[in-house]
Simulated scan of single mutants.
Amino acid sequence: MTEFINADDINDVILAAAANELEQMVDKMCELIGTPLEQTTELERQVMAAFGFGAVYGITHRDQLAEPQAHALSIRMLIKPFNYSEQQAVDFADDLIRVASDREVHPVMNTIIQRGIDGHRQFNQEDDEGLERNIQEILTAVQSQK
């Protein structure tokens, strides 16, 4: 008996792997900054989530995900590991997409997303030093703006 793998099953496997990769990256970021996610401030969590959205973009490009898959992956990342409610995650993902599409909407957040694209590359290349410097620079810059 021959089993067929359908496209939905393949997409589910790709999205599950991508979600796992994002969780590992967030865990690594928290390890590098020396603060567990549950001990970050709301501002730090938002910055790290925007940075993570840059990683979603990197994964989307690498794995050639369709727009709905990228959107679902963004929402999934905001729910787990960032612990936003479903509605918060949907709203935040929509904001991040808008910011990523138009730098003028929020130039600082757009820059954080762009740095997250670099951070994803650093994570995959196991460049912990570069990733730590990248996220620390952003957190320091944002905190000095308060």
Rank of each mutant, 00 (worst) to 15 (best):
I117E: 13
R133K: 12
R76C: 12
N83E: 06
S144M: 15
V142A: 07
I79H: 06
A7E: 14
E132L: 13
L22K: 03
T40E: 06
N20M: 15
T2K: 11
D8I: 11
A19M: 06
S144W: 13
D128Y: 13
E129R: 14
R45T: 05
D128T: 14
D94V: 07
M109A: 12
F82W: 01
I117G: 13
L32P: 01
F123H: 02
I5P: 10
N124C: 12
F123L: 05
E126S: 14
E132D: 08
E23M: 11
P107T: 08
A89Y: 02
Q87I: 13
D9M: 12
I10L: 15
Q122L: 15
E23A: 13
I5H: 09
I33K: 01
R98Y: 01
I10S: 11
T35A: 03
Q88S: 11
I59E: 03
Q114V: 01
E104T: 13
I138K: 10
K28E: 11
T41I: 00
L43D: 09
F53Y: 03
Q46V: 02
T111Q: 10
F51T: 04
Y57K: 14
C30V: 05
S74L: 09
R76H: 13
Q39E: 15
E137S: 15
I59G: 06
I14Q: 04
I59R: 05
P68T: 04
F53W: 02
N6V: 05
R98M: 04
T140K: 11
K146E: 03
Q46G: 11
Q69G: 00
G119N: 10
E132I: 04
E104S: 14
I138L: 09
L22E: 04
V47R: 00
L32N: 10
T60D: 07
F123T: 05
M29V: 15
E132S: 09
F82A: 03
F92R: 02
V105G: 00
L96P: 08
E3V: 15
V90L: 08
H106P: 00
G58P: 06
K80Y: 14
G54P: 08
A70V: 02
T111S: 12
E86H: 15
D91E: 04
I14F: 01
Q114I: 07
K80W: 12
D91G: 05
Y57F: 05
V47S: 00
L73G: 00
M77H: 14
I138D: 08
T40N: 05
A50C: 02
G34P: 10
V99S: 07
L73D: 00
V105I: 03
T40Q: 10
V105E: 03
N83I: 01
G119K: 12
E42L: 07
L32C: 05
Q114S: 12
A7C: 06
G119H: 15
I138G: 02
L32Q: 09
L131K: 06
T60S: 13
E126T: 12
R76F: 08
E132H: 08
S101L: 11
Q87N: 09
A18F: 09
N134T: 00
D91F: 01
D9P: 01
F53R: 00
E38D: 14
G54F: 09
D102W: 04
F82C: 05
A49G: 13
R115V: 04
F82V: 00
S101I: 02
G52C: 01
I112L: 10
C30Q: 02
Q39P: 06
L22R: 10
D95M: 15
H61G: 03
A89L: 01
E3D: 07
E38N: 09
L139K: 01
Q136I: 11
V47G: 07
V56N: 04
A55S: 07
